[in-house]
Amino acid sequence: MSIRLLAFDAIDNFRDYGDYAVGTGLRLRPGLLLRSAHHARASDADLERVKALNIGTVVDLRRAGERRDQPSRRPEGFDAQVIAGTVDDGMEAPHITFLKTEDLTPESGRRFMTGTYRRLPFDVSHRDVFSRYFRALAETDRPVLIHCAAGKDRTGFLAALTHHLLGVAREDLIEDFLLTNAAVDLDRRAPSVARQLEKMTGRAASHEAVVAFLGVEPDYLDAAFAEIDKRNGSLDAYLEQVLGVDAALRDRITARLSA
């Protein structure tokens, strides 16, 4: 198991996405870039572990409805800045709609996820949160935690975008993205998720379909990056034109996070 994974009782996929090489003799500083799934089920012991990390900013990538349905638990004395979307369209999360309306197969799950990744960089609420996140990276001296519901898609895309900005090699960027598949133990989790899905939808899904839906694949991230290239020409242009990460902001982020 990767040393990047941090042990928690009931917060999934908690890990450090710093400490990668970013140039000749330089590395991202460990302990400043953190990612996870939601914290709604955090145990009291988990809250103590979170408190010990001294997190200065929490970026909650979930929709307003998701935050209402599963409010985050916070440690005593919590004083971090919380960045969350301001758009509330009153709609349920797209993955819930998909699961309620379509049969889950490995093929349908992959089609849904690929389409989701193509749209993700340009969602109005996501763009605002992503932009505020990058400003926070430049301004705070404390660790920054990003999370969504499962900590794999919205979180995975934003972590990968951060790695690109900081100069992490593409193979390391992909390796970090795929670490979700080890962090979550998909084979062990799939049976309970399948039971929940059948209860919610009245339809049974195969073990293989659930594993495919719970995990991540390189093609998902490739789809997001390809759509960015199509619309903006490059990831760097997207960062500057869509998210407002200009050269000065990029330099401040790099200086704070690498050594």
Results as ranks from 00 to 15, higher is better:
residue 152 K to T: 06
residue 3 I to S: 13
residue 117 Y to Q: 08
residue 198 E to W: 01
residue 116 T to W: 15
residue 17 Y to G: 06
residue 236 D to H: 07
residue 137 L to E: 03
residue 193 V to N: 00
residue 64 A to G: 07
residue 71 P to Y: 15
residue 92 E to H: 14
residue 57 T to E: 10
residue 108 S to L: 08
residue 221 L to N: 07
residue 142 R to W: 01
residue 160 A to E: 06
residue 70 Q to N: 11
residue 259 A to T: 14
residue 112 F to H: 11
residue 42 A to Q: 02
residue 171 E to S: 12
residue 58 V to G: 05
residue 16 D to Y: 00
residue 211 V to E: 02
residue 104 L to M: 09
residue 143 P to C: 03
residue 102 E to N: 14
residue 87 V to F: 14
residue 149 A to M: 09
residue 245 V to Q: 04
residue 96 I to E: 14
residue 25 G to H: 05
residue 35 R to G: 06
residue 197 L to V: 11
residue 95 H to K: 00
residue 33 L to P: 03
residue 65 G to Q: 15
residue 129 V to A: 09
residue 114 T to P: 00
residue 46 D to N: 04
residue 189 R to D: 01
residue 130 F to G: 03
residue 67 R to T: 07
residue 196 Q to V: 09
residue 21 A to I: 08
residue 42 A to M: 06
residue 120 L to V: 08
residue 155 T to L: 02
residue 55 I to Y: 12
residue 204 A to F: 01
residue 193 V to H: 00
residue 193 V to S: 00
residue 211 V to D: 02
residue 156 G to E: 04
residue 114 T to G: 05
residue 149 A to Y: 09
residue 99 L to M: 15
residue 89 D to S: 13
residue 108 S to D: 10
residue 230 K to W: 00
residue 161 L to R: 07
residue 110 R to Y: 02
residue 210 V to D: 04
residue 5 L to K: 12
residue 124 V to G: 00
residue 31 G to T: 10
residue 210 V to Y: 01
residue 20 Y to C: 08
residue 134 F to M: 04
residue 73 R to M: 09
residue 259 A to V: 12
residue 95 H to L: 14
residue 155 T to E: 00
residue 192 S to F: 03
residue 3 I to V: 07
residue 58 V to L: 14
residue 255 A to H: 11
residue 128 D to V: 14
residue 159 A to M: 09
residue 38 H to C: 07
residue 191 P to M: 03
residue 218 P to M: 07
residue 163 H to K: 02
residue 128 D to G: 01
residue 245 V to D: 05
residue 83 I to T: 08
residue 258 S to M: 06
residue 149 A to H: 10
residue 84 A to T: 13
residue 147 H to F: 03
residue 206 S to F: 05
residue 74 R to M: 14
residue 214 L to Q: 11
residue 52 A to P: 01
residue 229 D to M: 01
residue 132 R to D: 09
residue 100 K to M: 14
residue 191 P to G: 04
residue 100 K to C: 07
